[in-house]
Amino acid sequence: MEAASPPVATAAADYPARFDVEYPERLSRWKIFVKWLLAIPQFIIVYLLQIVGLLMVLVAFFSILFTKRWPLMMFEFMVQIQRWTMNTVAYALTLQRDEYPPFSGEAGEYAVQLEIDNDQNLSRWLIFVKWLLILPHVIVLTFLWIAAEVAVIIAFFAILFTARYPRGLFDFVTGTMRWTIRVYAYGHWLMTDRYPPFSLRG
């Protein structure tokens, strides 16, 4: 018997964690030299927030174990932390945006979109193995991030000479960030039970 069609109809598009960066038509040629310096305050805040986030994951672990859900307030705060982090990354590290990111993780304030659906019925036992289940993703992402770093270096020179981020490179870097966010949402932040797609696409 031959299979008629692929059995898994779930597409990457309806994954509970969504990420995107709006493509800028033009970027500043000089900002690329100083973005990382300008972002130092952001980095410090994001670093401290990530420590808070880590502690929240620890609390969420037990919350999921006993109640099968993230505490609502904490969930929203965690998404804001990650949104703030990704805003900073898109500005200073992947050079995708020129606007200085807001000192906030509110949605809609920056040209970076990060949304995660709050699942109210998470698995109690998956939380023990999710970090192991993401190993294949981690391996792929290791190589993707090496490629993404090369892409950012190329983009740096492209912006310097043309004031434009090559679209292909931009989409690849955004896709790698999107993939990472999905894997983190599943394996590290324990926010969803749906195994992330092996895909760069949104």
Binding site: P6, V8, T10, A11, A12, D14, F198
Partner: peptide
């Protein structure tokens, strides 16, 4: 429980 496509699932 998977959105990982055929091989990933």
């Amino acid at each position: 429980e998977s959105a990982a496509g055929r091989v990933g699932t």
